[in-house]
Simulated scan of single mutants.
Amino acid sequence: MSFYESLGFLVFGSRLRRLSEAFLADVNKIYASHDLSFDAAWFPVFYILSRQETVSIRDISDELGISHSAVSQLVSSLQQKGFIKTATADDDARKKVVAFTTKGKKLQQQVQPVWDALQQAMGALVQEGKHSKTILTAISEIEQGLQNESVFNRVQTILHHK
């Protein structure tokens, strides 16, 4: 049993971070090996825009469950690279919407086969383990549990009852 396995939930976050970092490093290596100037961090915005012609920053924020500010920073970065453009929404002058530029749409079409292959590879990977088949369900359940009550509150409750 490894050090991390032996500590159970005390290092849960560290194990998830290590897993995420390894996964994202491999994904970025895949893009680079196919001469695609794409970063895994761009995926959520690119994916959403690949499914909708235009989308508001607020809608991206809501869909991803991250702050409006974080989405705005990512959108600004992608805009500076020439992949997306912003405009004022037709129905609300206060709302900013984003869309692909021609350059961005071309890049999205180039990375789509990688996304498809990644989906297949990950599907095969989770079939290899006895318990890994349910990892996405388990993660969803933990996310829901954390929405119901944070780890902070859970620990505080336990400490206050001792």
Rank of each mutant, 00 (worst) to 15 (best):
M1H: 05
F3H: 12
E5Y: 01
S6R: 08
L7W: 06
V11N: 15
F12Y: 15
L16C: 07
E21I: 00
F23M: 11
F23C: 12
A25S: 15
A25C: 12
D26Q: 09
V27F: 07
V27Y: 03
K29N: 08
Y31N: 08
A32D: 14
A32I: 09
H34R: 10
H34N: 06
P44T: 03
Y47Q: 11
V55C: 13
S56E: 06
S56M: 06
S56A: 05
I60Y: 09
S61I: 08
S61N: 10
S61L: 14
D62E: 15
S69T: 02
Q79S: 14
F83Q: 05
F83G: 04
I84W: 08
K85D: 12
T86P: 01
D92P: 00
K96M: 12
V97M: 12
F100R: 00
K103T: 09
K103R: 10
K103V: 05
Q109M: 06
Q110W: 00
Q112F: 11
A117F: 06
A117Q: 07
A117S: 05
Q119V: 06
Q120H: 04
V126K: 06
E128W: 00
H131P: 02
T134L: 11
I135A: 08
L136G: 15
I139Q: 02
I142G: 13
N148P: 05
E149C: 12
V151D: 03
V151E: 02
Q156Y: 11
I158Q: 08
H160F: 12
H161P: 00
